[in-house]
Structure formats: structure tokens, C-alpha cells
């Protein structure tokens, strides 16, 4: 008997019951106290033993589809971590039915606002998983090939050894030489052959290993690419490092209408030397406002007060010295 669940309410039902109840179209869940309307086509086999987890994963699927930002999109790791936590809290709210309405609204509004980013990231991760899959498949294939090669090599070696032995026996049978000597020589030949082959195989393998990444992969893919970021335009050099002096009592206008200046603005005799009316205006304005905000009385008063305090301290010191008796002797 197979049990099915419906992601509406996650009540377990056997297959035949599902057929019986829901084949006429949507019907309420037969479990007492549930009464949610279920459709047959949404019934499915459960993946996890724990239905709680089954539901959790469904929720997560939904949340993950929306909140799919990547670490690289954040300025700091901490921001990313905060983001992750927020998403997790959101998921928990959905799971344990806390403020569902607000949470759903948040989810929806986020999805609407960031539709482009979401789609972008989705495409990216799809591409990524495709390429990892391809890479894994390629690796598997290569491993299989190598295994095969090793097996063949071994077999070859065994065959050769057999052959060598047969040859030796043959030789012994047909020659009058000292059999021991023949055997010794024969073994040497076999040994030489096998070392030569092994070396060759090793070399081949080394070549293989070198060309693993560029040769056999069916799809051109590169692992571990960082997402492309636009290079930032180089800033114009600023000797003050961003420090601006802004006059506080006036605002410099682009031009001042003054009959006396009109001529200087256009006369080549004046301009040829590099004279700039704007500079002149700026200087004049600065000079005009230079003393504003400075109140002489106040400054004087402050100075006097400071002098008084000094005196006070001195006299206090003297008084203390006298009080101490011996202190004055020292002074």
C-alpha cells in the first residue's frame, strides 16, 4: 500500500482512497477537523519520513525561489549573514504560523521589487548546476577510462609473462645450453619488457593528467569563476582628498553684474595675462565677509577670564604653600 500526501494539509492517505474520493474533482479532506479542499493531481509520495520536514521543505522551496541572493552581492560578509538570518526568520514564521499575513506580504513585495535580480540569480544558479553536473559526468567518465586502461595494462603484463615463460620452456626443450642460464636470461628479458611498458604507461598517464581539464570535457566550462563586476571608473585625482572649503557666509555666483567688471570680462588686453574675473570676485567676496562672525569683545572677555583663572591657580598654589609651612621653605 502506498501512501500519498497533499501539500495543502499533509494528511496521509492511501492511494486507493485518494482515487475514490478525489477522482470526481476537488473534495474536502476526509480527515476529521481538516476540511480543506484538495485536488487529486496535487497528491504525491512523501520524500521524508517526518511530515513536518516534508512541509518545511515545501515552504523552503518557495522561500528559496524568491530569496536567492548570493554572497557576492553583499558588501560585507556580515550583511550577508544578516540577510540569511532574516530569511531564516521569515521561513520560521511561515512554518510555525507566526504573523503569516505580514510575512506573506513581505515575501510578495520583495518578489515584486526585485523581480529582475531574482530572475538573474536563478539563471546563474541553473547555469552553475548544469556546469557542475557536466564536470562531474566528465570526471566519472575519465575515471572509468583510466580504470579500463589499468586493467588492460595488467592483463597485457600477465599475458606477456606467460608468453615469456612459454618461450623459455621452448628454448630449454630445443637447445643444448645450460637450462639455468636460459631461464635467467629469459627472466631478464621479461623484466625489461615490463619495465619499459610500465614507464610508457606512466608517461601516458602523466600526459593524460595534464590534459584532463582541456581535452575531454564535452562542454566548455570553467570552475570557480567570480561573477563579472563592472570595473569602477577611475576617479579624477583630488589633491585635497575630498576636502572642500565652502564659504559659510555667501554663495559664489557664476557671474556678478557690475559695470566696472564688464570690460574686464572680454578685453583681450586684460585676459591675455591670465586674469580671471571669477577669481577676482571670489577674493573680493571672501575679503568682504572675512570678519563676519568674529566678535572682538567676546574674545577679549574670554581672554581676560582665562588670565583670571590663571591668577587664581597661582594664588591658590601660594596659599597652599604657605599652609603647608615647609613647602614655602623649599620655594
Amino acid at each position: 500500500m502506498r501512501f500519498l500526501v497533499n501539500p495543502e494539509c499533509y494528511h496521509k492517505m492511501c492511494e486507493s482512497c485518494v482515487d475514490r474520493i478525489f477522482s470526481q474533482g476537488p473534495a474536502p479532506c476526509p480527515v476529521a477537523g481538516c476540511a480543506r479542499t484538495l485536488r487529486k493531481q496535487r497528491f504525491r509520495k512523501q520524500t521524508f519520513e517526518d511530515l513536518q520536514i516534508e512541509r518545511e521543505v515545501d515552504v523552503r522551496r518557495r522561500v528559496a525561489a524568491t530569496f536567492n541572493r548570493r554572497e557576492s552581492e553583499f558588501q560585507t560578509l556580515r550583511d550577508y549573514n544578516n540577510y540569511l538570518e532574516e530569511v531564516e526568520t521569515l521561513t520560521f514564521n511561515l512554518l510555525y504560523n507566526i504573523d503569516v499575513a505580514i510575512t506573506e506580504a513581505k515575501l510578495a513585495s520583495y518578489a515584486k521589487q526585485n523581480a529582475a535580480d531574482i530572475a538573474n540569480n536563478k539563471a546563474l544558479s541553473a547555469q552553475e548546476s548544469a556546469s557542475t553536473e557536466a564536470r562531474m559526468a566528465a570526471q566519472k567518465e575519465q575515471a572509468r577510462l583510466r580504470r579500463e586502461a589499468a586493467r588492460i595494462e595488467e592483463e597485457e603484463e600477465r599475458r606477456e609473462r606467460e608468453e615469456g615463460r612459454r618461450e623459455i620452456i621452448e628454448k630449454i626443450a630445443h637447445s643444448t645450453d645450460d637450462p639455468d642460464k636460459i631461464v635467467r636470461e629469459g627472466q631478464k628479458v621479461v623484466l625489461k619488457k615490463s619495465t619499459a611498458r610500465r614507464n610508457a604507461a606512466d608517461r601516458l598517464r602523466a600526459q593524460d593528467a595534464a590534459s584532463v581539464d582541456n581535452a575531454s570535457a564535452p562542454l566548455f566550462q570553467i570552475a570557480g569563476l567570480r561573477p563579472i563586476t563592472q570595473p569602477q571608473l577611475e576617479q579624477v585625482y583630488d589633491p585635497f582628498g575630498g576636502y572642500v572649503v565652502k564659504p559659510s557666509y555667501f554663495e559664489l555666483q557664476p557671474s556678478y553684474a557690475h559695470p566696472w567688471l564688464e570690460k574686464a570680462k572680454t578685453d583681450p588686453q586684460i585676459l591675455a595675462g591670465g586674469y580671471d574675473v571669477g577669481e577676482y570676485c571670489a577674493r573680493t567676496m571672501m575679503e568682504a565677509c572675512a570678519g563676519l562672525g568674529v566678535f572682538v569683545e567676546e574674545e577679549v572677555a574670554r581672554r581676560e577670564r582665562a588670565a583670571d583663572a590663571d591668577l587664581g591657580t597661582q594664588s591658590a598654589a601660594i596659599a597652599g604653600g604657605e599652609g603647608g609651612g615647609s613647602g614655602s621653605d623649599v620655594l
Binding site: 518545511e56 560578509l77 550577508y80 549573514n81 540577510y83 540569511l84 538570518e85 531564516e88 526568520t89 520560521f92
Partner: peptide, 16 residues
């Protein structure tokens, strides 16, 4: 040296 990822920072999140 790295900080623990945000989604398992809270105890209940981690247990889940």
C-alpha cells in the same frame, strides 16, 4: 576565522 553563517546563528534555527 570566519563568522558562523547567519542562518544557523540562532539556536532554534540551528536545531531545525
Amino acid at each position: 576565522q570566519e563568522a558562523v553563517p547567519g542562518n544557523i546563528r540562532r539556536a532554534e534555527h540551528f536545531v531545525a
